[in-house]
């Protein structure tokens, strides 16, 4: 149901969207600027994209970030889903409140604290048991997994609580073991949440500067760390080009994922309706 709204509100909404998008659009426009001065327009050129593609430091950092993102997002999906299932399906058990607190705390914890504390843990562990030896991509993966699994848990848990419990109960009544119910019934039903959880975890990992700066070692420089060190020195048209590419990839990804998820959701609803209709169709004799 829609209701008439004062026209001033629409103007306010448009201004708000302009505020959200002007910086991004200005980044994109000036990535095509010819001059090295990022803020003075001097003509159209794609030279900064060429320069970007020859910048080995940025390219190798991007490669490392993507690898770290893929691994930590996969781990975060597994662990976050476990947390969500335990919290949504296991009822009450001793330590449930603590687990729920531990799983949501990374969402509100300032990153500088999480980063510092994880680094101190790694140093203490290395002193005590010799693992992990030095800081590397591995320690960044652990940090990102811990941080991102909280987000995955929230996404998956809301999907689980919104799900019709009757389907799982029916499978259990018919004698399926809990693990079978999970893999055959629950997992396919929550798969859209797993996909969005994975994408969210991947983006968080790809975007993180603070945690990575604390826990990385000399060999492991991620893309945000390179961007940060360049940005501190001043504006750089190459960074604008990089930002444009990232916005393009992410924008396309979000739109495509949105369309696919939407379609999957509609197909699922149609299936459910057909299943219900099928139940009623055969006449009782």
């Amino acid at each position: 149901m829609s209701r008439r709204v004062h026209p001033a509100l629409w103007i306010w909404l448009a201004a708000g969207f302009a505020f959200l998008y002007v910086p991004i659009v200005s980044l994109i426009i000036f990535s095509f600027n010819e001059s090295k001065l990022v803020t003075v327009w001097s003509g159209f050129s794609t030279r900064w994209y060429g320069a970007l593609l020859q910048n080995d430091q940025i390219l190798s950092a991007a490669g490392l970030s993507v690898r770290i993102g893929l691994i930590s997002a996969s781990l975060a999906v597994v662990l976050g889903t476990l947390v969500a299932v335990v919290l949504a399906r296991f009822g009450m058990f001793r330590g449930r409140a603590l687990l729920s607190g531990l799983a949501t705390a990374p969402l509100v914890m300032p990153e500088v604290i999480t980063g510092l504390s994880l680094l101190l843990l790694f140093v203490a562990l290395e002193q005590a048991i010799g693992w992990p030896s030095g800081r590397s991509a591995l320690t960044i993966i652990i940090a990102h997994t811990t941080f991102a699994m909280a987000y995955v848990a929230v996404v998956v848990q809301s999907r689980l609580t919104g799900m019709d419990p009757a389907i799982e109960e029916a499978a259990m009544d018919l004698g399926a073991r809990p693990s079978k119910v999970f893999f055959v019934i629950t997992l396919p039903l929550i798969s859209p949440a797993l996909v969005s959880g994975f994408l969210l975890a991947f983006t968080l990992s790809l975007d993180d500067l603070v945690l990575a700066s604390f826990v990385s070692g000399p060999g492991a420089t991620t893309l945000p760390m390179v961007i940060y060190s360049k940005v501190r020195l001043g504006l750089s048209p190459e960074i604008n080009a990089l930002a444009t590419l990232m916005v393009a990839v992410v924008g396309a990804g979000v739109v495509i994922a949105g369309v696919i998820l939407n379609r999957a959701e509609k197909a699922r609803q149609r299936d459910e309706q057909m299943a219900l209709a099928g139940d009623e169709a055969p006449p009782l004799r």
Binding site: L20, I24, L27, F30, T39, V231, A243, M246, G251, V254
Partner: peptide, 29 residues
């Protein structure tokens, strides 16, 4: 419209902050 609200979330936080340097500088946009 909701997708437009969420979209900036997915783009790099660092780069969105960087964009403001170009806008706010003394010789900025």
């Amino acid at each position: 419209l909701l997708m437009l609200v969420v979209l900036p979330f997915w783009t790099s936080f660092l780069l969105r902050v960087y964009a403001w340097i170009g806008l706010l500088n003394n010789n900025g946009i």
